[in-house]
Design a protein around this nucleic acid. Structure first.
Lengths: 228, 228
DNA sequence: CGTAGAGTTGAACTTTGTCAATCAGTGTGG
DNA sequence: CCACACTGATTGACAAAGTTCAACTCTACG
C-alpha cells in the first residue's frame, strides 16, 4: 500500500500544517520536503514492528496511527496515539535506527514518510537550524511522554478522562458540545485504559453533566470536571 | 547552596563521564564546558518547581535527583530518577523555557548546570554537531520515557521489579550478588510503586531465589526472573 | 432485515494503594 | 556505653480501582 505520489498543492498545504514544519524556517521546510514521500495505509495495516530497522520516520496527515508495545503474551499497550499533524519516529534522526515499538494505522490513514538517511545528511550539512527544528519536535514529544507518565501515576481513570475532555473543549467555556476525534476504543488506549473502563468513566461523568451520545459529547458544567 | 567552583582536573574527568558528552566531539564538549557550573545540593533540597522559568539544565555527577509532578492534593509521582551520568532538562534547549516538573536532590548530590542561553547561542553558532549531540541525549530520554509508559501499562509490580533486577545484573549470569544503587523508597518511585509494594514484590521474589538483605541483592536463578 | 463491529453492563477477581503498627539500623547525646 | 530518637523498611488488614470475561445492546450499513 506504500504508494509514492507526486506532490500536488493540496498535499503541500497539508504537509505545511504538520507540527514538524511549524517551528521550521521556510528553507528548512523545503529541504525536508525533498525527503518526503506520501503514503496511505489501510485500517489495521502494520507500518513496522519493534526491532525492525528504521529507514524513515512519519508525519500523520489524516487518520490515526497507534504506537504500541507488546508483552510476551501478545497483550498490547499503547504508547502514543498520533493524529493529523503529529510526527513519530523523529527521535531516530539523532539516536538509534531500530524501532522500539510497533505501529499500525487505526483507520485509513494518510502519511508522509521522511527518509532517515537523507534527513541526517541534510541535518549534517546545514547551519543547524534544520536539526534544531526536528529536535524541537522530539523535545515536545518528550514533554508529552512525561505528561503521560505523570498522568498515569497520579490520576485515576475518571480524572484522566475528565482531563481529556477539558483539553478538548474549544474555548474552555461550558455549556459546550463537540465530537470525539476518534473511536472510543482508541481513546481508551491513549488514556491507558481498557475500553470498558472508559465506558464506565463516561457513565460516572453523566452525574456531573457530561452527556455522551455516540461520538458526540455535551458538557454542561466544565467547572465540575475541573474540580476532579 | 549553588556554589560556583573553578573546575579542577577531577571535575573535568567526572564531567567527561557524563552521558551528554559521550556522543559529542571533543570541540563540542569543550564548548559545552564553557557554559558549565558545578553545584552541590543538600538532601531533599529543591532544585526548581513546575512552572518556574528555567535558566539552566543539569547533569548529575554524584547522588540522585528526583523529577516529579504533584497533583492538587500534594501527592507526588516520580517521572524520572536521575543518577550519575544522567542529564535532565536538555529538552528545554530546543522547546520551552518553563519547567514542567519539580526536581529535588534525593541524597547529597553534585551537579553540573549548563546555562540555557549560552548553550542555545553555541548551538545556533556552530555547524550543528553540537545541537545534534544534545538532541541525541533528548532522543534517548524519549526512548526511556516510552519504555516507562509501556512498562507501567504492560507489567505488574512484580514484573517491573524483576525486570529492574535483570537490568542491574552485570554480565547477566546467575548466581550473582550486587548492591542496589539507591534507597529502596527511591527505587519504588522510579518503578511507579508505593514503597510497600516494592517490599512485597521483594518478599514474593524470595521464592524465586532473590534474597534481599538491606541494599544487597543475591540472585540465584536469573532465568526464573526472566520467565516472569 | 440481518449482520458485523463497537460499545455497554454486570460480576468476579487481581492488583495495588493506603493506613497503621511494628521492626531494624544508625547516629546522638547523656 | 546505653537509652533514645529518627529514618527507612516491612507486614497485615482493608479499600479502591481496574482488568477480564461474558452476555447483551446499539448502530451503521449492506
Amino acid at each position: 500500500m506504500n504508494t509514492t505520489l507526486s506532490m500536488n498543492d493540496r498535499m503541500k498545504a497539508q504537509f505545511i500544517e504538520t507540527g514538524l514544519t511549524a517551528a521550521m524556517t521556510l528553507p528548512s521546510a523545503n529541504r525536508l520536503m525533498e525527503c518526503a514521500t506520501f503514503t496511505t495505509a489501510a485500517p489495521r495495516q502494520k507500518l513496522f514492528h519493534e526491532g525492525d530497522r528504521a529507514r524513515q520516520f512519519f508525519s500523520v496527515v489524516t487518520g490515526y496511527v497507534r504506537l504500541f508495545r507488546q508483552n510476551s503474551d501478545g497483550r498490547e499497550a499503547d504508547i502514543r496515539i498520533c493524529g493529523p499533524g503529529d510526527t513519530f519516529g523523529a527521535e531516530l534522526v539523532f539516536a538509534g535506527n531500530i524501532w522500539t515499538y510497533d505501529a499500525e494505522a487505526a483507520d485509513k490513514a494518510m502519511l508522509v514518510s521522511f527518509d532517515l538517511e537523507k534527513v541526517r545528511e541534510i541535518a549534517a550539512g546545514d547551519d543547524g537550524s534544520f536539526a534544531r527544528a526536528i529536535a524541537a519536535s522530539v523535545s515536545a514529544e518528550l514533554q508529552d511522554a512525561r505528561d503521560c507518565i505523570a498522568g498515569d501515576r497520579l490520576n485515576t481513570a475518571l480524572q484522566r478522562v475528565a482531563h481529556y475532555l477539558i483539553e478538548q473543549c474549544p474555548g474552555g467555556a461550558s455549556p459546550q458540545t463537540f465530537r470525539l476525534a476518534c473511536r472510543k476504543s482508541l481513546l481508551a488506549g491513549k488514556l491507558g485504559l481498557a475500553p470498558e473502563a472508559l465506558s464506565r468513566a463516561f457513565a460516572t461523568l453523566k452525574t456531573l453533566g457530561v452527556h455522551v451520545q455516540g461520538r458526540t459529547i455535551e458538557i454542561t458544567d466544565i467547572e465540575a470536571l475541573k474540580a476532579l
